[in-house]
């Protein structure tokens, strides 16, 4: 059972970070879907409600997404979803249900670097930056690759660079965790192919991405790109699928996503 000793609702990000690092057993509260499943005894719970971190703001060249933004907001935001072919909405739509997506948050998800994450897969296909209370702003890729360090994720920044994108996930039961996820984006000769739920955390298929940017796409080349992606990624096994099956799925999903992106032009 999840327990909280003391609750704090700091008024500044700095204070939130200070409490998180100074207090023993302190934790930031997101939407709590994951926290409540554990039996963590949280000494000091940090609630970010007073920091105005809930919501999506459009700027001239970017979107700012607060850490407490819920998945349902991503799904239904009418402005955000006119960009990137609605990539983020597509990514979060299969997750459990409306009432669940009204609860879970962007900040917690990205900070936790879940391997199965649909959202992280999609965000990685975009030019996404993570803003941390202490760590500052950095590319999502850099954040995912750096070792764990206590911090508060405050915002995501996504550049409105006009890239086209497509999302594919594969699940058995429609509301299960994905067996594999893929997001593909393309902008002016720059391609990006991300594969997640391997079940390791999402990563960019570097060679395949390069090929995607370079090539004039036809069916055969798409097959080659998909095979390249499947070949260069590492896959593992869990209850939902073997590594071997995931590799095969990777070919199919990448091909489908690439086909979609190519059709967008």
């Amino acid at each position: 059972m999840f327990t909280v000793g003391q609750l704090v609702q700091p008024d500044t990000v700095e204070e939130a970070y200070r409490i998180l690092t100074e207090k023993k057993d302190a934790a930031v509260l997101g939407g709590c879907a994951f926290l409540r499943m554990g039996s963590r005894a949280i000494g000091t719970a940090i609630d970010l409600s007073h920091l105005n971190l809930e919501g999506i703001t459009e700027h001239a060249d970017s979107f700012e997404i607060g850490a407490m933004t819920t998945f349902r907001m991503l799904e239904t935001d009418s402005v955000l979803n006119t960009f990137f072919d609605g990539l983020l909405a597509e990514a979060v739509k299969p997750i459990i249900g409306v009432q669940f997506r009204h609860a879970v948050t962007v900040g917690a998800t990205v900070f936790s670097k879940y391997g199965f994450s649909d959202l992280i897969t999609a965000l990685q296909a975009l030019d996404t930056e993570v803003e941390l209370a202490h760590g500052g702003r950095m590319a999502l890729e850099a954040f995912l690759n750096r070792p764990y360090e206590k911090d508060v994720l405050t915002r995501l920044w996504i550049r409105k660079d006009g890239r086209r994108a497509a999302y594919q996930s594969f699940r058995n039961s429609a509301s299960d965790f994905p067996i594999l996820t893929t997001a593909v984006s393309l902008l002016a000769g720059q391609g990006r192919i991300v594969v997640g739920a391997r079940p390791l955390k999402a990563a960019i298929a570097v060679q395949a991405s390069q090929e995607l940017g370079r090539m004039d796409l036809n069916s055969q080349r798409m097959d080659e790109i998909a095979a390249l992606a499947a070949g260069e990624m590492t896959f593992g096994a869990n209850m939902r699928g073997s590594a071997e099956y995931r590799r095969e799925l990777c070919k199919v999903l990448v091909k489908r996503a690439v086909t979609e992106v190519a059709a967008c032009k």
Binding site: G31, A33, D47, H102, A103
Partner: peptide, 16 residues
């Protein structure tokens, strides 16, 4: 419903 939106009451902290 929390502010009119269907939400899981098992996952929403009461103080919020």
């Amino acid at each position: 419903w929390i502010d009119g939106k269907p939400t899981l009451s098992c996952t929403a902290l009461s103080f919020r």
